[in-house]
Design a protein around this nucleic acid. Structure first.
Lengths: 117, 117
DNA sequence: TTCGATGTTCGTGAAACATCGAACAAGCTA
DNA sequence: TAGCTTGTTCGATGTTTCACGAACATCGAA
């Protein structure tokens, strides 16, 4: 469980973010985090092995889209909405709206939340 | 020189577009086409072999970002701005603004246009 | 018909990516 | 201390992507 590297807000790149959000699972994760609430790893449900989920969360973090905090043995994630907005104005908003419209990333959910069948 | 397949406007997907625009060269191509003018293949300058350029143009076309027209032996491309806007409102605008800001894809230009050093 | 120009496709590598299970590290808890 | 939980890292595998040059197809011009 090593230290996670987070890029500065200024280091967020357009192509990095585009690449990170070109995977439905990662879009789903961002959607789940879109309400701004911090979530624990364990709350996140996705149809992949935990090592794969760890990988996806790392890609999001490396792209500067999320921030990870560690507390004891468990981790929490938040969307870095302001930072992304500062560097790429309007992008996240457009992506989230489109993802919502097409229900992209519906495979990802939060444990305990009401999931529409 | 076979028929090029173009997805319908409705078939444009978020993740497809995100993936297509996660490459600086393709962002550069879109930037060049952003003025809405149709361009001939030969006008496009990019630091890659022509087969590679053909590949990138195909990826853009397959994602629904551009439309290709054939005239004799040569081809022309246009940005499908309205179609993309209809499916993914605000996305292209945000990408273009960010690309302009960071000068992403500057390696791509139009032959004969003034290129700032 | 022969040639040149223009794109596409093919064959091929190298690199990146998604995915998994297994092994590992670190911190609680018993 | 031993064991459980949580998340990361490693190695393997298969797929996709990017890149190139070469070969091919097509059209217009000589």
């Amino acid at each position: 469980m090593r230290r996670a590297h987070h890029p500065e807000a200024g280091e967020i790149t357009l192509t990095g973010v585009m690449a990170a959000l070109s995977d439905p699972i990662r879009v789903g994760l961002v959607r789940v985090l879109a309400d701004g609430r911090e979530r624990g790893w364990g709350e996140l449900q996705a149809p992949v092995a935990k090592s794969t989920l760890s990988h996806h969360l790392r890609v999001l973090r490396d792209a500067g889209l999320t921030r990870t905090r560690q507390e004891g043995t468990r981790c929490f994630v938040v969307l870095r909405r302001e930072d992304v907005q500062a560097r790429l104005p309007g992008l996240l908003q457009a992506v989230l709206a489109a993802a919502e419209e097409d229900d992209i990333g519906r495979q990802v959910s939060v444990k305990g939340a009401e999931r529409p069948a």
